[in-house]
Every structure is written in C-alpha cells, then in structure tokens.
Amino acid sequence: MMKCTEATQLLSEKMDRSLSSKEKINLGVHTAMCPACRQFGKQMLSLRKISQQYVNHKEGNN
C-alpha cells in the first residue's frame, strides 16, 4: 500500500495536473483507508480557495 508521504505528494499534484489511472486507483485505495490523508486532500482544496481570496477580504470590514 502507498505511504502517506506518497499519497500527500499526489494529493498536491492532483491540484496541478490530471493523475494517471493507476495513480488514481492507488490514491483512491489509500485515502479510503486513511482519514488523515483524506483530510489533507480536503485541505488542499481549502488552501486554493483561501489563496484566491487573498487581498479581496483582507482588511475588508471595519
């Protein structure tokens, strides 16, 4: 089974390129069994969302 170090790297790369079918399967199997990497994957999406709002809401109110 894939290690968390490899899974997290792929979860990051998934933000930048399409993974191969083999990578997708291996990653899918890993994250199905590893809640920590599952969270990591969600956080990658959150990081993107947050970064895109950089500036926009900075010192926005008050």
């Binding site: 290690k3 809640p35 920590a36 969270q39 956080q43 959150s46």
Partner: peptide, 17 residues
C-alpha cells in the same frame, strides 16, 4: 514507514471558510 505521526495527522477544518 512514511505514515503520519499520530499528533501530526491533519484534522478536520471546521468551516474552512
């Protein structure tokens, strides 16, 4: 072994927004 240390496992971000 390349797995998360227990204390370092990513936690759920409540309302990331």
């Amino acid at each position: 072994k390349g797995h998360w240390q227990k204390d370092e496992r990513p936690k759920k971000w409540d309302e990331p927004d």
